[in-house]
Simulated scan of single mutants.
Amino acid sequence: MTADRLTPDDRSALAAELALGLLEGDELSDARALAARDAAFRAEVERWGARFAPLLDNVADKVPEPAIWQSIEAAIEPARGAANDDQPDLRRRLARWRMASGGLGALAAALALVLLTRPQPQAAPATAPAPQIAAATPMVAMLAGNDPAPVRLVANWDPAARQLIVTPAMTPPHDPARAMEVWVIPADGTPHSMGLMPAEGPMRGTIDPAMGRLLRSGATLAISIEQPGGSPTGAPQGPVVARGELIAA
């Protein structure tokens, strides 16, 4: 697929790969040429660079576990048997992310999964009504803070599945006398609790529709330090140690 015939999703993925330096040969030349003549594509490359900067600057190098790549491959497996011209591009893209993962870490692999598994556009029948704009775009937030100790987390929100995953990248040692509570703060500024971070690993949860409507682009996700069991008042009582804005992935 040439750069001039890319779908919007392919353009976004290509911009991400150019920002991270994953392209080589003709693909690199074509992407650079597209960025030189297309201001919108050039801006997309810059946006991806800004999104990945926290990972590149603050997350220690770590080779993703094999299970992470198996999950990515399983996610694109259903398309393998279909007659889909984009499938070779997806396989090549996965290979590039796999080769780069040693320098990007397991969290970048999670973002690769967002890129690789976003729904591919299908051509509508000639008689079909005009499609409605979907409000189910996956989103991501980089949560960062420095008080009382460096805290870094990555949040992934999948509106279609109503799944929120908050993955710690850098957090203080677990203290059983404290709890890390996740909050969403929409435009009206009122915090709403999304649950507690576990002692180890990511927080995963299925969000009810009413709360899911608060997880929109521009909303803030925040982490506060609370007593065991979380804030008893429904609002943050302890210090907010990390925050970040949701943006389209």
Rank of each mutant, 00 (worst) to 15 (best):
D30L: 05
P209Y: 07
A123D: 10
P239R: 07
R96I: 09
L56T: 08
S101P: 09
Q120K: 15
A109T: 11
M139Q: 15
P173S: 03
R118W: 03
P232E: 08
A179C: 00
A160P: 01
P239C: 02
G49A: 06
L6S: 08
T167A: 02
M180K: 03
A210L: 12
E226V: 00
A35P: 13
G201S: 09
L20Q: 02
P209G: 06
E44P: 05
A109K: 08
M142I: 00
M170L: 12
P209D: 01
I68A: 12
D86L: 14
I165P: 01
G103E: 12
R98Y: 01
A134Y: 01
A82N: 04
G205L: 12
A100Q: 08
A130R: 02
P232F: 07
E27P: 11
A249T: 03
P191R: 01
A50N: 09
R93E: 13
D188K: 09
L22V: 06
L107G: 05
P198Q: 03
R178G: 01
G189I: 02
P228R: 11
A242W: 11
H174P: 04
W69Q: 10
A40T: 06
D85M: 00
T233Q: 10
A100I: 07
A160N: 05
N58I: 00
D38S: 09
A219I: 00
H192F: 02
R216W: 13
A249D: 11
G103S: 14
T127C: 07
P138H: 02
A160S: 14
I165C: 00
A16R: 00
M203H: 14
G229L: 04
T233K: 07
W183I: 03
L94N: 08
W48G: 08
A50W: 01
T206N: 10
R216Q: 15
M99V: 09
A160E: 10
G49W: 07
D38W: 07
T167E: 05
A36M: 01
A130E: 09
M1W: 09
P186D: 15
A79Y: 14
T171W: 09
A136R: 12
G238L: 05
A123P: 02
A141V: 10
T2M: 05
N146V: 01
N58L: 06
A248G: 03
A126G: 10
M180F: 10
D208I: 00
E65L: 09
A39D: 13
L196V: 05
A126K: 10
A74T: 14
N58T: 02
D30H: 04
R32Q: 15
G145T: 11
A13D: 02
R92A: 15
R213A: 15
A124W: 11
H192M: 00
M142N: 03
L23S: 10
Q70S: 13
R37M: 03
S71D: 01
P191G: 07
L28S: 04
I165G: 08
A39Q: 14
P176Y: 12
I72R: 07
A82T: 11
P129D: 12
A31D: 12
E181V: 03
Q237G: 07
M170A: 13
T220C: 03
R92T: 08
